[in-house]
Simulated assay, not measured.
Amino acid sequence: MSAKRLPKALFLVLLGSTAPLLAACGASTIEAPFYDTTDVAGFKSYAAPDNIMVMEVHDGQTGIDDASWAKMFSHHGFAPQLDFITPQDAQTRMDNANSSPDQPTLRPRHRMVVVVNPTQNTARNTMCTDPKNAPLTPGQAQTPVRFAFCSGDSAVSELRANIENPVDQKKLNDLAPTVIHYLFPISQPDRNDDHCSRLSPGC
């Protein structure tokens, strides 16, 4: 599968030079999502036929291990809810697949990518092809964290959260349901409908 480009006008509306804030928890915020397809739910079903998806984390800032990241973001959003696993766990499961026919189907190229304090160029498809992060600036009030649902080398959906420092598991737990809700919407709204808010994926 490959992501279908949105019409240019819609792309510009979604991208926007100043993304509106969608959700706040304390001093942490989530910016408006970007969608590169009108069928995120279809990509999700293909990427995780058994509702298990790989989460690739590029952290190096928070001290939170990859397994904890995966656990915090699992079982949120619209049904069927996803159970995230680390790339290492995915490799172990795939290695064992030959010995057990009951192993779930995994498609590691279709994955969720997380980058803590991403570099300026780490956005959109670069989240899937060459994600990089940078050291925190001393005294930095918030840490940006980018989330992308990647289909191979292309971003199906993406958003950025700005999390109050220090970033800890409680703040991430609080934001996880909203992040998953917007990253994996059940359907795309009809953007031509005057009664449908572009900030509501389930509209």
Rank of each mutant, 00 (worst) to 15 (best):
M55H: 09
M55F: 07
M55S: 04
E56H: 15
E56D: 15
V57D: 02
V57G: 01
V57Q: 03
V57R: 02
H58Q: 04
H58P: 00
H58W: 09
H58M: 05
D59C: 12
D59M: 14
G60Q: 08
Q61R: 14
Q61E: 03
T62I: 09
T62F: 13
T62Q: 10
G63N: 09
G63D: 02
G63T: 09
G63R: 09
I64D: 06
I64N: 13
I64M: 15
I64E: 08
I64W: 14
D65F: 11
D65W: 06
D65V: 14
D65A: 10
D65M: 07
D65R: 13
D66A: 12
D66L: 10
D66K: 14
A67L: 15
A67Y: 06
A67H: 03
A67R: 11
S68I: 12
S68W: 02
S68F: 03
S68D: 14
A70Y: 04
A70N: 01
A70I: 05
A70G: 03
A70W: 00
A70F: 05
A70K: 06
K71T: 12
K71V: 04
K71L: 10
M72W: 01
M72L: 14
F73Y: 04
F73L: 10
F73S: 01
F73V: 06
F73K: 02
F73W: 00
F73R: 00
F73P: 00
S74D: 03
S74F: 01
S74N: 02
S74H: 01
H75D: 07
H75S: 12
H76T: 06
H76N: 04
H76P: 09
H76Q: 14
G77C: 02
G77Y: 09
G77M: 11
G77H: 04
G77K: 06
F78N: 01
F78Q: 10
F78M: 09
F78E: 08
A79I: 06
A79E: 13
A79V: 06
A79C: 04
P80T: 08
P80M: 10
P80V: 05
P80K: 03
Q81F: 00
Q81S: 10
Q81N: 05
Q81H: 05
L82I: 11
F84N: 02
F84W: 04
I85T: 01
I85F: 03
I85P: 01
I85G: 00
I85C: 01
T86S: 08
T86V: 07
T86R: 12
P87E: 05
P87T: 09
P87R: 14
P87H: 14
P87W: 15
P87D: 13
Q88M: 14
Q88N: 12
Q88L: 12
Q88C: 09
D89K: 11
D89T: 12
D89L: 11
A90L: 08
A90E: 12
A90W: 01
